[in-house]
């Protein structure tokens, strides 16, 4: 670890919840809208044209929600998602992530790609492990 790396908490956050740059954009959008809730269609529309078809956005929202970063509110027209970190540590990691997004965007995006690459290769290795740990 050197000074050109992101903080370990941010790296862990990326590792667990941000599999791609599009997922990063989704999280940043919801965080900066400050608690407002969004449907997947609205998220996809807001990110256009930089990312995102709604089919792409949906699994990212589900992942972020299952990791405790988003809260799901169900309405007549389907699930809506709003930023609501479940622990103060999570909120702090996200704050640092947003800071990095504005101050070191190149490093942040490079880190997202590097972690995604490593996870794909790890998945290849894990495929050959017959018994899965939970």
């Amino acid at each position: 670890m050197n000074k050109h790396d992101l903080a370990p908490d941010v790296q862990r956050l990326i590792h667990s919840s941000i599999p791609s740059v599009e997922a990063l954009e989704v999280l940043i959008l919801l965080v900066s809208s400050d608690g407002e809730v969004w449907s997947p269609d609205e998220v996809a529309a807001a990110l256009r044209p930089s990312s995102a078809a709604v089919e792409m956005v949906r699994p990212y929202l589900a992942l972020l929600a299952s990791d405790g970063l988003l809260k799901i509110t169900t309405r007549q027209d389907g699930a809506h998602f709003g930023y609501a970190p479940t622990t103060p540590a999570m909120a702090e990691a996200v704050r640092q992530l947003v800071m990095a997004y504005h101050e070191q965007p190149v490093l942040l995006i490079r880190t997202v790609y590097a972690i995604a690459d490593r996870q794909k290769l790890q998945a290849f290795v894990d495929a050959f492990k017959i018994r899965k740990d939970p």
């Binding site: 690459d117 490593r118 290769l121 290795v125 050959f128």
Partner: peptide, 11 residues
């Protein structure tokens, strides 16, 4: 290359 990147002997 994957081996050098990850250190996984499988590669």
């Amino acid at each position: 290359r994957f081996w050098r990147k990850t250190g996984q002997a499988l590669f």
